[in-house]
Simulated assay, not measured.
Amino acid sequence: MTPKTDPPRPVTPQIPPPAPSEEIRVKLVGNTGAVEFRGIRFGIGRATAGQRVCVMDAGNTVMVFDLRGTLIIEHPWPKPGTEHVSNGAPADQPLEPSNVSDVLIHQLPEMS
């Protein structure tokens, strides 16, 4: 006697992966320290050149984070037609990233 087998199962259709979010993108920072998002180059500093960052459309602003979630810079959306937004820092002075741990480890001056 031949053993019974399970009946054939219907083929599960391939579900395509979700499309990238319209609000958050992972981008590569160019060698000039700028990242392009929605046709605009946002300067974030040469210290980040070659790194991947998360760029987020936060409504009225564009926020750029490193892959650990540290906010690198936040820019207001520029006027239509703008092609480049500077980071506002002098070329020889990189921006200081900020995150909660920086605030927590900051030494407060002694109180007298």
Rank of each mutant, 00 (worst) to 15 (best):
V26L: 06
S101C: 03
D57G: 13
F37W: 08
R41H: 06
G88I: 09
K27A: 13
K27C: 14
T48L: 10
F37Y: 15
R68T: 12
H75W: 11
P20S: 12
H75E: 09
S98M: 10
L104C: 04
F65C: 13
A47Q: 15
G39W: 02
K79M: 04
Q107P: 01
Q14D: 10
M1A: 15
V62H: 02
P20F: 14
V55M: 06
V55I: 12
A47P: 07
N99W: 07
G45M: 04
G50P: 01
S98Q: 05
T32N: 02
R46C: 00
A49E: 03
T48I: 00
T82I: 14
P3V: 15
P76E: 12
P80F: 00
P80D: 04
P16E: 13
I40S: 02
N87G: 05
F65T: 14
R46N: 01
I73S: 08
T61H: 10
P3A: 15
T70C: 10
W77K: 15
L95M: 12
P78D: 10
A58W: 06
Q107E: 11
I73D: 07
A49Q: 03
P109L: 05
H75P: 10
E110S: 06
G30H: 04
G81P: 08
P97T: 14
A47W: 01
S86L: 10
R52Y: 15
Q107W: 03
L104M: 12
Q14H: 12
E23P: 00
D102C: 07
N31E: 15
G45W: 03
R38L: 15
R46Q: 06
V64E: 07
V64F: 07
S21E: 06
I44G: 00
I73V: 15
A58V: 05
L108K: 12
G59C: 08
A89V: 01
G43A: 07
P8F: 06
S112Y: 08
G88V: 11
K27Q: 15
E23G: 03
V26H: 06
S112F: 11
P76K: 05
T5A: 15
T48S: 03
K27P: 01
H75R: 05
L95P: 08
N31R: 13
R38W: 07
P109T: 02
V55D: 04
E110Q: 08
D66L: 09
V103W: 00
P8M: 06
E36W: 00
P3W: 13
F37S: 04
I72E: 01
G69E: 09
M111S: 14
V26K: 08
E83Y: 00
I40G: 02
W77I: 07
A89E: 11
L104N: 06
R9Q: 15
G69R: 05
M63Y: 00
P80G: 02
T61K: 07
